[in-house]
């Protein structure tokens, strides 16, 4: 097997593996019992998206896509930070947000 063939085969297999990972992460987003669980899964989803783009870069040879991967990493990080702030301000885990909580948190 020549090296280019091997690279293409590895790319195809990687697409398959990453799709499976994507699917498993989405299961956690759907069933995740609490908000932080879902946010972690979304964070991982961004990483898997970057991985996808990296495989596309190697598979097609369009190195321009690398910029998109960097931008996605930036946006994903900011989204996670924003979600963390949101969790902090949303109130307690179990009970619904009470008025006093709202005042102390904000």
């Amino acid at each position: 097997m020549s090296s280019v063939e091997f690279l293409n085969l590895a790319g195809t297999i990687s697409f398959g593996i990453l799709s499976l990972a994507f699917f498993l992460t989405i299961i956690r987003i759907i069933i995740g019992p609490s908000l932080p669980d879902r946010v972690i899964a979304l964070d991982l989803l961004v990483y898997i998206g970057i991985s996808y783009i990296a495989v596309v870069v190697i598979y097609t040879g369009y190195f321009l896509y690398l910029d998109i991967a960097i931008a996605l990493g930036l946006v994903g990080f900011l989204a996670t930070v924003a979600f963390a702030r949101f969790i902090l301000h949303r109130g307690k885990a179990d009970e619904p947000v009470k008025k006093s909580d709202k005042e102390t948190n904000s």
């Binding site: 590895a10 990687s14 593996i17 499976l20 498993l24 990483y47 990296a54 495989v55």
Partner: peptide, 9 residues
């Protein structure tokens, strides 16, 4: 590539 996607999985 194979190793990296395996870690993602």
């Amino acid at each position: 590539m194979l190793l990296g996607s395996a870690f993602c999985l």
